[in-house]
Amino acid sequence: MAEISEVRRELALDCFLLAGKVMMESGAETYRVEDTMIRMAVSQNMMDSHCFVTPAGIMFSPSNDLPTRFVRIHGRRTDLERVARVNAVSRRLVAGQLTLQQAYEEMTEIEKNHYLFPLWLQVLAAAVASACFLILMGGGWADIPFAFLIGGIGFYIVETVLVKTRVKFFAEFIGAVAIGTLAVLVVYSGFGNDPDTIIIGSVMPLVPGLLITNAVRDMMAGHFVSGLSMGAEAFLTAFAIGAGIAIVLSF
């Protein structure tokens, strides 16, 4: 194994941990983060490195006699474009198309930016998805405008409450209460026909789809800590939505 100078080794460690942090914060699966970091390490001649990733932090040990580094992961927010970009940079580093310095610069660039679609487009997408699900779940055509509006409003409320309070379950709960109230009001005032399908369609954009897929894939890869914690988060989110709807229906 070639001797690596200390400066270069620190740069390499910074680079791997940054890549892992960005991927974990943007909603990648745990096993993919570990796999990416180990591949990058092997490409930099760190053959016996170990890596342990959880949704809350990343531990990375370059070898037996070097100190282990740790990064804490704070907020997580779904931004799959960032995952794809970090993945592309790491592929190019492993293939030798980028030097370590260039890879590190690209990683910091990705970390600084976010590639989210503008909020109005996300709200519009949620509204369109709600309207589509209304028909797919067997609702009537007359209810389409209500599902479109209520789905968009519900998603917007969840996003704003999430920014204000930083508590995800509370935001989902408030969003579900708003969706339920609006749907019942629309039907009660005689415009809408069927509150059930309107609620089901409008709630769809809040469903924790990414958490479900990640939990299943992590459990399969043997990462039970992350798999169970993501599964618990998915379950709690679903429970928050259900509780919000139930409160409205009980009146």
Partner: peptide
């Protein structure tokens, strides 16, 4: 409709354009 719904969810999850 399912094509449209899945595409819309792609925007919500922010997948590459």
């Amino acid at each position: 409709l399912s094509f449209l719904a899945a595409g819309a969810f792609g925007i919500i999850f922010n997948i590459p354009r």
